[in-house]
């Protein structure tokens, strides 16, 4: 083979590998999109119909009319937005203290927080359920908002504190000379200058809260209080053998579409945030 041919074939191999990676990552999602657009007869055809003979969106209507799916979505939105605001706000306050103020014992406490955050929530679920029950917050979205926010705080504080450190100290000092108190300095100077980091944190906290399953399953036993992931996992037909796959696929697409849009729009930011959050270990 000539030099040129070899170069050409390695380029071919490279893009083949890239195409394969894209296919592997997207295929399960795209298969759901296809299933959701089939008629219910074609969904349960054997052998499977790969391309629907006729596209229909009837499954999308069914999921809203036959199931309380809009209630699940509403619950998920409340929980995800509530958590994002609470967590980002509280984390910004703490990150400000850890990154820019003199804190006696601050290093030890922030290390302890990082250690605590390493453990999977599975270790906490039993005791947390009892705690939420005692507080009378079962089936209340507040239970999920408070828990999700707390579970995401270590990561959020870490990302924000690292960013706050980069805001030059003299800007803050100049503002203080102008008579701004610490509180105003944080919200009027440091936070706006750190807008990219705050957006990154908010996106990641939102995705976590939108996706969480275990705690949502244990805290919300009433159907009307369920979030989308639990609602979908619990979808079943009249008998357990009769799973409505056409409706499920429509529900899966509706639930995952906002996340797919967020990833496409904020890919760079999400990767930066994940990297910053993970290097802590």
């Amino acid at each position: 083979m000539s030099q040129k041919q070899r170069k050409q074939s390695s380029k071919f191999l490279f893009f083949g590998a890239v195409a394969l990676v894209c296919f592997w990552s997207l295929a399960p999602f795209l298969w759901q999109v296809l299933t959701s657009l089939k008629s219910s007869e074609e969904v349960i055809a054997s052998p499977p119909v790969y391309w629907p003979s006729r596209l229909t969106i009837v499954s999308y209507f069914k999921i809203f009319s036959a199931r309380p799916f809009s209630v699940y979505i509403w619950n998920s939105l409340i929980v995800a937005f509530g958590t994002t605001f609470l967590c980002t706000g509280v984390a910004a306050l703490a990150a400000y203290a850890f990154s820019r103020l003199k804190l006696p014992g601050g290093k030890a406490v922030s290390n302890a927080i990082l250690l605590v955050s390493l453990f999977p929530p599975t270790l906490l679920v039993v005791a947390l359920k009892q705690l939420i029950q005692t507080a009378g917050l079962l089936n209340n979205p507040l239970s999920l908002i408070l828990t999700y926010a707390a579970l995401n705080l270590p990561f959020a504080i870490w990302v924000l504190a690292n960013f706050f450190k980069q805001v030059p100290m003299d800007i803050e000092e100049a503002a203080q000379v102008d008579g701004l108190g610490r509180w105003s300095v944080l919200w009027k100077i440091v936070a706006p200058l750190s807008a990219p980091a705050i957006a990154t944190t908010a996106i990641l906290v939102f995705i976590f809260s939108w996706n969480e399953f275990l705690l949502a399953l244990t805290f919300m036993s009433k159907d009307a209080a369920r979030t989308v992931p639990v609602g979908i996992a619990m979808l079943s037909g009249v008998t357990i053998y009769e799973i409505p796959w056409d409706q499920i696929s429509a529900a899966v697409v509706i639930t995952t579409l906002p996340v797919v849009a967020m990833v496409l729009a904020f890919q760079r930011r999400i990767i930066e945030g994940l990297t910053a959050g993970a290097v802590k270990g």
């Binding site: 298969w31 399953f213 639990v230 979908i232 996992a233 990833v263």
Partner: peptide, 23 residues
Amino acid sequence: VRAAVLIPWALPTAVMAMAWRWI
């Protein structure tokens, strides 16, 4: 391509588990 690779991570695990159950 980076966004495409990120998608499985970002999607809800329980919801995509339903998708896999279908597959």
